[in-house]
Simulated scan of single mutants.
Amino acid sequence: MLRRMIRLALALTMVMGALTGGLLATAGPARADECYTWGRTLSAGMSGSDVTELQIRVAGHAAYGEVMAVDGAFGPATKAAVTRFQQAYGLPADGIAGAQTFARIYALQDPDCTPAHFTYAELNKCNSDWSGGAVGAATAKANGLRTLWKLEALRHAMGDVPLTVTSGFRSYSCNSAVGGASNSRHLYGDAADLVGSPSLCRLAQQARYHGFGGIFGPGYPDHNDHTHVDGRTARSWSAPDCGV
Score class of each variant (00 low, 15 high):
Asn124Met: 11
Leu194Ile: 12
Ile96Glu: 08
Asn127Lys: 06
Pro162Ile: 13
Asp241Cys: 04
Leu23Thr: 07
Leu54Ile: 12
Thr139Ala: 15
Thr20His: 01
Tyr188Leu: 11
Phe169Pro: 00
Val51Thr: 05
Leu200His: 01
Gly180Arg: 03
Gly217Phe: 03
Gly179Thr: 06
Thr147Glu: 11
Ala103Gly: 01
Tyr220Ala: 09
Asp110Glu: 13
Val67Tyr: 03
Gln100Cys: 12
Tyr188His: 05
Lys79Ser: 12
Pro29Lys: 13
Ala134Asp: 13
Val244His: 01
Arg155Ile: 10
Ala177Cys: 07
Val165Asp: 02
Val70Cys: 13
Pro92Arg: 14
Ala25Gly: 13
Gly144Phe: 02
Val161Cys: 15
Gly213Tyr: 02
Trp38Gly: 05
Leu200Pro: 00
Leu91Phe: 12
Cys126Ile: 10
Ala192Asn: 01
Ala181Asn: 12
Asn143Glu: 03
Gly211Cys: 05
Asp225Pro: 07
Phe169Asp: 03
Ala77Met: 12
Thr26Cys: 09
Thr41His: 03
Asp50His: 10
Ser236Thr: 03
Pro76Ile: 04
Cys174Ile: 05
Gly65Ala: 05
Thr83Ser: 05
Val58Ile: 10
Met158Ala: 05
Leu108Ile: 07
Asn143Trp: 01
Arg31Leu: 11
Ala80Phe: 11
Gly65Arg: 00
Ser238His: 07
Ala62Ser: 15
Arg155Ala: 03
Phe85His: 02
Arg146Gly: 04
Arg57Phe: 05
Pro29Glu: 14
Ala204Gly: 06
Val165His: 01
Gln109Met: 14
Thr164Glu: 13
Asp160Met: 14
Leu148Ile: 11
Asp129Arg: 15
Val82Trp: 06
Ala138Lys: 13
Gly22Thr: 04
Gln100His: 14
Ala93Thr: 14
Gln109Cys: 07
Gly90Asp: 05
Gly219Cys: 11
Ala142Glu: 10
Asp112Leu: 14
Arg232Lys: 13
His117Pro: 13
Tyr89Met: 08
Tyr172Val: 08
Asp230Pro: 04
Asp33Arg: 08
Ala207Phe: 04
Gly72Leu: 09
Arg3His: 10
Ser171Trp: 09
Trp130His: 08
Gly21Val: 07
Leu19Val: 00
Gly60Asp: 11
Arg104Thr: 13
Val195Ile: 13
Gly214Cys: 00
Ser176Pro: 04
Arg84Tyr: 08
Val82Glu: 03
Gln206Ile: 08
Asp50Ala: 09
Gly189Phe: 08
Thr227Tyr: 02
Asp190Trp: 02
Thr26Ser: 15
Arg7Asp: 05
Tyr220Arg: 09
Pro198Phe: 06
Leu154Asp: 02
Leu108Gly: 02
Asn183Val: 13
Gly180Glu: 02
His186Met: 07
Val70Ala: 09
Ala191Thr: 08
Thr147Leu: 15
Gly132Met: 07
Tyr209Gly: 00
Ala62Leu: 09
Cys126Thr: 09
Gly98Cys: 09
Met5Asp: 12
Thr227Cys: 12
Pro198Ala: 10
Ile6Ala: 10
Asp112Ala: 15
Asp129Val: 14
Ala103Asn: 03
Lys125Leu: 15
Tyr188Asn: 01
Leu19Met: 00
Pro162Tyr: 12
Ala207Ser: 10
Leu148Arg: 15
Asp241Trp: 07
Val135Asn: 09
Pro240Asp: 12
Pro240Glu: 12
Ala121Gln: 15
Ala32Tyr: 06
Ala73Ser: 14
Ala63Tyr: 07
Ala138Phe: 10
Pro240Lys: 08
Ala11Asp: 02
Pro76Asp: 11
Val178Asp: 12
Val135Met: 10
Asp190Leu: 00
Leu8Ile: 04
